[in-house]
């Protein structure tokens, strides 16, 4: 099967059962994307598919042959960090770091959703105006669990990027 990861086309010969997450980690050595639960419950495996954040553990690699997949490695690299990566460093948005790639990729996808005017469960109105306060950020990021509970700094890091309009 043919996958496009971080702009690079890859030809792979995989068992049809391979999840996108296992394809990335075990076959392409892109181990930035983490496996927490393997059941859609933790968000550690979050990647962008055609710009939208999804759980890579709950989809088959073969289902994404025509899609553009972006992982944490594709967002930024050492020396060329994405603003969200910078902000997590600045705000100390992690402790052990295991959930961090998923948090960062999810946050990038989330800001894009907010820019499109998508409402959330925390939104007072459904009129398409979004103002990302702490309650909104927490709700929109609830698919990313942090076992170390670094949540306050994660929220700060994301709010900062949003306020600077940098992502």
């Amino acid at each position: 099967m043919r996958l496009t990861i971080n702009g690079v086309g890859q030809e792979l010969d995989l068992d049809i059962r391979t999840s996108l997450l296992d394809a990335l980690r075990d076959h392409l050595a892109l181990t930035g994307t983490k496996k927490g639960c393997d059941h859609g419950q933790c968000g550690a495996c979050t990647v962008l598919i055609n710009g939208r954040r999804v759980n890579s553990c709950l989809t088959l690699a073969v289902m994404h042959e025509d899609d553009e997949i972006t992982t944490i490695e594709g967002l930024g690299q050492p020396g060329n960090l994405h603003p969200m990566q910078e902000s997590f460093l600045q705000h100390d948005g992690f402790q052990c770091g295991y959930c961090t790639p998923g948090q960062i990729v999810s946050a990038v996808g989330m800001l894009d959703e907010a820019k499109k005017g998508w409402p959330s469960h925390a939104s007072k109105d459904l009129d398409g105006t979004v103002s990302l306060d702490n309650a909104e950020i927490s709700e929109r990021m609830s698919g990313n669990i942090c076992r170390c509970s670094a949540y306050p700094n994660i929220v700060d890091a994301i709010r900062d990027v949003n306020e600077k309009g940098a992502a």
Partner: peptide, 23 residues
């Protein structure tokens, strides 16, 4: 849907997570 069927928007937004709802 937001304007004419807000109960449906609200129900969807109360379910799962951002990543799951995208899929």
């Amino acid at each position: 849907v937001r304007r004419d069927y807000p109960v449906l928007s609200r129900a969807l937004l109360a379910g799962a997570s951002g990543q799951l709802r995208n899929k």
